[in-house]
Every structure is written in structure tokens, then in C-alpha cells.
Amino acid sequence: MLIWYTIAVLLSLAIFSFLWKDNPLYKFAEHLFVGTMVGYQVVVVFSQIIMRKIVDPISVALDNRQILTLISLVIATLIGLLFLARFSRKVEWVSRYPISITVGFWSGYAIVASFKTNILTQIRGTVVDDLGQPLLNGHLIGDFFKNPSLKTLDLATAGPLLVFGVIVVLVYFFFSVKHDHPMVKFANKPALFYLMIGFGASFGYTFMGRISLFIGRMNFIFNEWWPLLKQTIGG
């Protein structure tokens, strides 16, 4: 246990040493990491893809005499094997077929899903909230004037700010309209303002996440490895 923990600590320190400068320790850790991951990926591909998606289903289809399934599996496997044609200069061109099939399939597959999730659902979510109430809600604005407080101000302004932000940012991303077009001119500055506020918030949020990862690593070194080391040495 102590040996593995110590190796983990030494490798962590070797990676952190990159903050000082590139050095043999970092190089060693980097090469070890890359080598281990490549080896790991080979095993994952073999067990999770070659065995689970090709060999096992083909055996099941053979056992159950499911001819159509068998044919589709064999065809898909053969198409996949065409990738290996890259190793021969003569038949290298053949490897473009599986690439074109992959790209074509994913592009087509993504169209309807993107329209549904990234466009229609997003637009709907910008017009009404989760409870189906409109984001531009006159009642909420009226509530603020009746009972002015931070909470009612937040409720009254959140929706209109979101709606306005979506409109100006969408206009900002029109590429075939000239910069001096009045609509673009009007939207440019507020759009950048919205974008930068959004990115700033996202930066802070993610940065805190990274700090927590660092704390986790330090926690491992000082609260797990160090006590274990003391305990082992001290008997």
C-alpha cells in the first residue's frame, strides 16, 4: 500500500515540477503517463469494442442463426477494417471510405438532435421558465413596484435581461451583415458585455473547480500518504 501511495506522490510531484521548468523528472512522468494510457486504451478497445461489439455479438448471432444481424455485423467490421489500408501506400485511398461513412453518419445523425436540443428546446426555455411562466412577465415587474426588494427586483429583471441578452448575442453572430448595419451596431456592445460577463462567471466557477482538484491532491499527500508513511516508519 505504502509503495503505491509513494509512487503516486512522487509522480504527482514530478508533474508539478513542470511549473518550475521542463526537467527529466517531468519527462519521465509524462512518458510513463502517455505509455500507460496508450496500453490501457489498447486493452479497453480490445475488451470493450473488439470483444463486446464484434466478437461476442457475432458468436451470439451465429449460435442463434440470426443471419441478418450476422451480415450487418460482418459488413460493419469489414468497413472498419478498411482503416488499416492506411498502412499500404498502394491501397491507402480505401481508408477514405470508412472515414466518409463515419463523418457522413455523424453529421446526419447530429442534425435532428441538434435542432431539437440546441435550438427548439433552448428557444422555448428562453420564452418561458420551467413552470411554463413567461420570462417577460408583467406581473413580476408590477410586484417589484408594489413591494420593492432585492428578491422582487431579481425576479422582475432576470427574465427580461435573459431575453434581451439572447437577442443581442444572436445578432452579434450574424456573419453576413456588415458591421455598420444599424441592428449590428446597436447589438455589438451589449452582446460583448453579455458574453464577457458569462465567460467571467464561467472562468471563476471552473477555476474554483481546479483549485478543489489541487486541494484534493494536497489532501492525498498530507492526509493520506504522510500519516501512512509515519505509521509505517514508526511501526
Partner: peptide, 20 residues
């Protein structure tokens, strides 16, 4: 892409107005 974006923007603005 720009034209489609424009159409969707119009639908969005109309939806907001109709909801109001």
C-alpha cells in the same frame, strides 16, 4: 445559417410578444 438564424430569431421574438 444566417438566414435560418434570422427566421428563428423572428419566431423567438414573436413567441415572447405573444406570451406577453
Amino acid at each position: 445559417q444566417d438566414i435560418l438564424k434570422g427566421i428563428l430569431l423572428v419566431i423567438f421574438v414573436l413567441a415572447v410578444i405573444f406570451q406577453l
